[in-house]
Structure formats: structure tokens, C-alpha cells
Design a protein around this nucleic acid. Structure first.
Length: 220
DNA sequence: CCGGTCAAGCCGTTAC
DNA sequence: GTAACGGCTTGACCGG
């Protein structure tokens, strides 16, 4: 990127390593030296732009059009204060906004924009978390669905082949333990009496030969 | 105010 | 070591 060299060509008077903002190993937590992090004492008053002066260094490149101003980077202190305020309340009324702006040496509009962005990005993160959660749920439900589909296929195969006793009520197979063979007619019946519906015609027509009964016991 | 977007700046990686 | 590059963060703006 052609702009990277510009970052290093700007010198900020007074921004030495003794800055309290850079107490953590020379870098302020997540970034190295930030050209915008000039001492806060010169933020207001010294800056012709009325704002903090985090980008009010002389534009060495000259003003080549309307949009050539340097991007503002809030100091760590400013961000901390904004975060604290955001933690207490995600929205600000006019009074709070003005108070916070003057406390930070920012325009109220900048505080407003910061809160808007903060809200939007908080929501975005929450949405991402929610999306990941739903994705995991979808995955496990898909697996469960596949498993159940396989089970259905197996059960269908068993019905087509050696026929099983199917409850007309629930369309579920009877447990073998609930089934007994009538010694007189040699038909399998539902012995529990809990199933209110009749055994389906297809099931009733099943001749209870010993092989079928053994199969039912194994399947249950 | 929100959602979308742009653009400056920062950071990690890679090729030389 | 460093330039180039891509990805990410974040301040700002615009339209609805």
C-alpha cells in the first residue's frame, strides 16, 4: 500500500517513549506508536480544528483536496472513558453527550458517532455469535435427522421383509415384550392392552411362526 | 438512530 | 531487513 510510508514520515513533537499512554512495553496494548497519540494537554486549544488534535499535525502532504485530513485515532484514555460510559449506558442523551464530549475534548458529534459505531459493532458481534450457535445447532439437527432417516429406512425394510407388528395408533412397532402368541389361533397379539387401537390388519394377518417371533424379539 | 459503506491506519505474513 | 500485500479495526459519512 502506498500510504504506509506516510505513517512514518510524520513527527509529533513531544511524543516520546515517556508517554504514560505507552506504559505497556512501548506499545499501547494492541498497537505500536500512534501518530495521533499526542499528549492530551495540547489537544484542546492548540488545535485549530477544535477537536482533540489527534490528527491536527501539519499535513506535510499539503491539502490536495477536501478529503486529505488525517484520520482521527482516539487515545487509549479517550477510548477507555468512552467504553466506561458505554458500559453504563448504550445511548446518550444530549446532556450526557455534551458532558462526555467536553470531558474528552471531542466534538459532541464525534461522541455520537463513536456510540453509533459501538452499538452497531456490538450488535454485529452478537449476531456473529448467534450465527455460530445456530450453525452448530443446524449441524447437530442435520445429523440427528440423518440418523432418524436411516432408522426409518431400516424399519421400512423390516416391514417389507419379515413383517413387524405396527400399532395403528402410533405407527410404531410393538415391543416384543408386549406381544404374545395365541396358542389357539397361533397369531401374535398385543398382550399389554395399553395400546388402545387395534393391531393393524397387516399385522393381524401375520402368521406367528417361530421365526417371526424370534425376529421380533431380536429387533426389540 | 440504524445499516451500509468508505477510507486511513495498523498488523501479520510472505517473498526477495 | 524490508517492501508489498491482504486483512482487520475504526472514525466518519450518507441515506432511509
Amino acid at each position: 500500500m502506498a500510504t504506509s510510508s506516510l505513517q512514518l514520515s510524520i513527527s509529533v513533537p513531544g511524543s516520546t517513549t515517556t508517554s504514560p499512554l505507552h506504559s505497556s512495553g512501548g506499545a499501547c496494548g494492541m498497537r505500536d506508536f500512534d501518530i495521533n497519540e499526542v499528549p492530551s494537554t495540547m489537544d484542546i486549544g492548540d488545535c485549530p480544528e477544535e477537536i482533540t488534535g489527534k490528527y491536527c499535525e501539519e499535513d506535510s502532504g499539503g491539502d490536495t483536496g477536501g478529503g486529505s485530513h488525517k484520520k482521527l485515532r482516539l487515545t487509549k484514555e479517550q477510548t477507555t472513558l468512552l467504553e466506561e460510559s458505554f458500559g453504563q449506558n448504550h445511548t446518550l442523551n444530549l446532556k450526557q453527550k455534551d458532558a462526555l464530549a467536553s470531558q474528552l475534548g471531542l466534538k459532541p458529534r464525534q461522541v455520537e458517532v463513536w456510540f453509533q459505531n459501538r452499538r452497531a459493532r456490538t450488535k454485529l458481534k452478537q449476531t456473529e455469535v448467534e450465527y455460530e450457535h445456530l450453525k452448530r445447532c443446524f449441524g447437530s439437527l442435520t445429523e440427528e435427522n440423518k440418523r432418524l432417516q436411516r432408522e426409518v429406512e431400516q424399519l421400512r425394510a423390516l416391514r417389507v421383509g419379515p413383517q413387524r407388528m405396527i400399532s395403528a395408533n402410533s405407527n410404531e412397532p410393538f415391543r416384543a415384550s408386549m406381544l404374545t402368541m395365541c396358542p389357539r389361533c397361533e397369531r401374535v397379539t398385543n398382550s399389554s392392552g395399553t395400546d388402545k387401537g387395534p393391531i393393524s390388519t397387516k399385522s393381524l394377518s401375520l402368521k406367528a411362526n417361530p421365526d417371526n417371533v424370534r425376529l421380533l424379539v431380536r429387533l426389540s
